[in-house]
Design a protein around this nucleic acid. Structure first.
Lengths: 203, 203
DNA sequence: CGCATAGTTGACTACGCTCAACCCTGGTGG
DNA sequence: CCACCAGGGTTGAGCGTAGTCAACTATGCG
C-alpha cells in the first residue's frame, strides 16, 4: 500500500480522490486557507512558499512528479504556505478526513506516510546545514553534490537559477559568480544547462 | 495514548523501556551509530548536532524535558546526528522494533507520533525562514518573538548566548551587537538573563 | 520584430566575520 | 578567605565578501 500508487489504496479513499489541472503560475491554495486536502503531484512541478513580512519569500519545498505535499495540513486547521504551479501540472487531491481515517485503519499506509514525513525532515535538515556554510561557492558546491545522484556527476537544472539562488539564500548575482568561480577553479564544468562535478567525493 | 505518558502505553512497550542518566557533556549516541532507540527526555536537556567538514557543527534540535527525539532513526539504519546532554539529564529509551510494531498496532499512538513529526517539520521550516532574514538584528528580533509565548513578552535563555548565536547562524559577537542595538532602538529591554519584548505584534 | 525575462558582469557599499583586548562571573584550590 | 583561572559575554578595529544597483547580452515568446 502506497500513497503514490492509486491502485494500492483502500477503495473508499480511492473513490474520493480528485484530479486537478493547473496552469503555470496558478495557485492551488493560499497560506491561511482552511486546510482540506493532501496532494500528490501527478505531473508537473509545484512550489510551496511562505510569505514573510516585507516581500521576503521562502520556498519550503519544490514538489515534482510523484511527490506528495501539504502533509502538514492534515494536522493543522489552515495551510501554512501557498502552493503554486511552476509549470502546467496535474495534482491528485485526497480529502483530509478520509485520508486521516485511512491512516488509522491501514498501518501500511500510516507507515508509508511516516516515511514521507521523515524524508521531509531530513531534507529540511540538509537545507539548514547548507545555510551554515558562509562562503557562497562552497555552499553552492555542497548543494550540487547533494543534488547529484550518488555516482553520477552531471546535474541539469529544471528551474531558473534565480529560484535556486533564493533556495540557497543567495542573490542570483552571487550564485552566478559562485558558479563561474567554481568553474575557474576546476571544481565543475558547465555547458548550457548542464553542470559536471569534478574530482570529488560526491557526498 | 501518548508517547510521553508512560501509563498510557501498551504494556509490552511499557515493559521494554529503559531509563538512562547522562552527565553534562555526555554523548548518548554518535552520528553513524546503528540506530536502535527512540528517546524521550525525562529531565534535563540534550542537543542533536551534525558535524560537517572543517569543524562546522549544526544544531538540529534542542530537546527539553518532555520532548522526544531521534524519530528519524526509526526509519533509518544509523543515527544521522550526535546526541549530547547539555546538562545532567535522564532519558527514556524505546527499542526501535517494539516501538515500530506498536505504531502499527495502535492508531492512536501512530497519530501521536505523526503529530510529533509534523511539529518537527514546522520547527525546521521556521528556522529556515529565519535564515532568510539578512539583517542580524531583525533576525534576532524575529527569533525572540518566536520564542515568546503568545501574549507574554518576557524571555529567559536557558543556555549560553554563544549556542543561540550558532543556532541563528551568527557569531556570538554579532548576536551581542544585535541585542545591544535592539535595546538601543527600544525594541527590547534586558536585565540579567531576561529579555522583554516591546511594542510589537508578537507573532 | 519587439518585448519581457533570465543570466552575466562591473563598481560600490555595507554588514557580518575575524582577531584581539577587556570585563565579569563562578568555581577551585591554596 | 582570597587568589587564581576558565569561560562567557562585550566592545573595538579592520577586512572580506555578499548584497545592491546598474548596464549589457541572450533567449524565448507574442
Amino acid at each position: 500500500m502506497n500513497l503514490l500508487n492509486l491502485d494500492s489504496l483502500p477503495i473508499q479513499l480511492r473513490n474520493a480522490i480528485m484530479v486537478q489541472s493547473l496552469k503555470p503560475g496558478q495557485v492551488l491554495y493560499r497560506q491561511g486557507d482552511p486546510a482540506g486536502m493532501f496532494y500528490v503531484v501527478e505531473a508537473g512541478r509545484l512550489k510551496l512558499v511562505r510569505y514573510g513580512e516585507d516581500e521576503r519569500t521562502t520556498t519550503l519545498l519544490v514538489a515534482r512528479s510523484g511527490e506528495g505535499f501539504a502533509e502538514v495540513a492534515l494536522f493543522a486547521e489552515v495551510y501554512p504556505c501557498t502552493a503554486i504551479a511552476e509549470i502546467a501540472s496535474q495534482v491528485i487531491a485526497y480529502p483530509k478526513p478520509l485520508l486521516l481515517s485511512a491512516l488509522r485503519d491501514y498501518p501500511d499506509l500510516a507507515e508509508d506516510f511516516m516515511t514521507l514525513l521523515v524524508q521531509r525532515i531530513q531534507a529540511l535538515q540538509i537545507r539548514l546545514e547548507l545555510r551554515d556554510i558562509r562562503a557562497s561557492h562552497e555552499r553552492v558546491l555542497r548543494y550540487l553534490r547533494y543534488l547529484a545522484q550518488p555516482g553520477r556527476t552531471v546535474i541539469r537544472f529544471d528551474r531558473p537559477l534565480k529560484d535556486i539562488a533564493n533556495d540557497l539564500g543567495l542573490t542570483p548575482e552571487t550564485l552566478s559568480r559562485a558558479l563561474t568561480r567554481l568553474e575557474r577553479d576546476g571544481r565543475i564544468s558547465r555547458n548550457q544547462q548542464q553542470i559536471i562535478l569534478h574530482n570529488s567525493s560526491a557526498a
